[in-house]
Design a protein around this nucleic acid. Structure first.
Lengths: 147, 147
DNA sequence: AGTTGACCTCAACCTCACTTGAACTTGCAG
DNA sequence: CTGCAAGTTCAAGTGAGGTTGAGGTCAACT
């Protein structure tokens, strides 16, 4: 198998992540690259999986900072194994569960409120959610626009 | 009946929204205020409900632009009725449903992937969600390079 | 009348996750 | 060798939803 390093364009094409984003990830320390004599980035194949992890983690709702923290726990010096990746993503499930639960509570409240149109600050459950949160993350948290 | 207008501080205290945010809402045209001779804002009581609507709508995931659009459909010249508010929030339920569904699909995929730790770009379902992009904060110019 | 706190405007700044543009260099095909 | 796509850096911009600060005014209490 040809395990030649990837150019940034190749990594971008294969990961679906823009080159500008890849440089940005590097700036944040999420990924690294060797350089050619001409200063161009060359990525190890393992970076492909690393980027895949980043995107998956984002989809689950983690910020890049949190992802960086997670990636920092990976063993240095050797290519991470499947077990390493599985360990990192282990905590995602409860996160998704929590998000779903949050939305279900909101839906319940909406059912109770929608008919009355009250929106009263004192009495309307919609106005007094027991969860505050308002997580700002990509994808996972927000509702689809224009639905 | 003392239906005296509210100062911005009072509106803030009763709505739980910071004064800076209330001024920002006014700038966006979401709310309006009379002014005293000394140029201070005085809000009608109805504004309290309007702010309540805004916060509820935000919690459901609408942007302030979308909320402004919705509010623009309210009848001018008279205080909105409960029916008006109910009409506006009618579309929220499907939105929440859609979001929950999306997360449930993600959770299913995670269940399939978590054990293997693969995160393969070709084969891992987590990497190939059937719902694309959905919501990124900066919603505009977002072309997937390879797609 | 004085003091204090609430209020005013306007501009600048914040976070997050990037993108865009300018100006320049490398790498490779013909 | 030429041409050009693809790479480089750095700075600045984007968008949502605000906050913060400076510098000044207003309103209420004593």
């Amino acid at each position: 198998m040809a395990t030649s390093p990837l150019t940034i364009g190749e990594l971008s094409a294969r990961s679906g992540v823009a080159t500008s984003a890849l440089r940005y990830y590097e700036e944040l320390g999420l990924i690294t690259a060797e350089r050619t004599t001409g200063n161009q980035r060359r990525y190890r194949r393992a970076t492909l999986r690393r980027v895949a992890f980043i995107r998956s983690a984002q989809r689950v709702g983690l910020t890049l900072d949190e992802i960086a923290e997670a990636l920092a726990t990976l063993p240095e010096g050797r290519t991470p194994t499947k077990a390493d990746w599985a360990r990192l993503s282990h905590g995602w499930r409860p996160r998704i569960d929590a998000q779903i639960e949050r939305l279900e509570r909101l839906r319940e409240k909406l059912d109770g409120c929608i008919g009355c149109g009250c929106l009263s600050l004192r009495t309307c459950a919609l106005q007094n959610p027991d969860d505050v949160v308002a997580t700002r993350g990509p994808g996972a948290v927000y509702l689809e626009p224009g639905a």
